[in-house]
Amino acid sequence: MKHRLQFTAKKLLRMALLLLGVSFASFLLMCASPLDPLQTNVGQTALGSMSREQVEKLEEYWGVDAPPAERYLGWLKDVLHGDFGVSLLYRQPVLEVIGQRLANSVWLLLAAWIISGVLGLALGAAAGAFRGRWPDRLIRGYCLLISSTPAFWLAILLLLVFSVWLGWLPVGLSVPAGVDAAAVTLADRLRHAVLPALTLSITGVANIALHTREKMADVMESDYVLFARARGESERSILLRHGLRNVALPAVTLQFASISEVIGGSVLVEQVFSYPGLGQAAVTAGLGSDLPLLLGITVITSAIVFGGNLAADLLYGAVDPKIRRRAAGR
């Protein structure tokens, strides 16, 4: 029990430090950004036609003159009190904006995460089991091709094929344009999510499949698989009983580590599909100098990624008999 508490405390401390570091780094990047918030958000012409006081008011609103240290510490103090501030662009509390965006993104992310995990595991296991033969070469070729393809390019390609040429799926957004919010059906939402989710899944598969393949190939060359074969177990039984069992542990870690890749990928993919999710909000906030929103998004997504890794650690303990037995004996 004491061990568990120590483990949890250590993890929480690490998470706090990580979030602090991430928020600070994003803040520095934002400060270093050459974009002038007034020119970007108000426009040169509008600025020119404004009076001195109006411009000063705007400068105060966007925090142009405040010293950086003061701005960051001010933000940090508020966050520690549970207040993430108000988005400068949306004029809504940051948490509210993130909540809405996340609700849009979550199904997309979840679908991509599950599909890439399951498909990646299956393809990787198959490639490892057939190492050197044609299924392996085919799968590996696909993975290498996809790994070297930028996600946004793939997104544009899919958009071109399925939306523009074939016309099967909508070009963008998460709901049909010009339709009353109440009239939007679940089918509409699904149709709009298919392409972004597909893009994210396709790119996510490669990494997981290649790692799983490596592990599976190791397992298939191990002494215990040789012994199983010597004892007359069929190849099928070896693959299912020994192969998958020994690939499962690294697969769990990989699956949870890939959360960060899915979230990272969604930033660009949502942009391409004009999908009003968290990723797109991050881009808008970054380009529009919306400091509270950007920091809020980075902190929340980092926390999600960290939570994923933590879940992997905990699951590992539950799956690995060595750790499990040791915990039981304590």
Binding site: D223, Y224, L226, A228, H242, R245, N246, L249
Partner: peptide
């Protein structure tokens, strides 16, 4: 012992 599946 390495000839036995470590997880079974």
């Amino acid at each position: 012992v390495t000839w036995l599946d470590p997880l079974m």
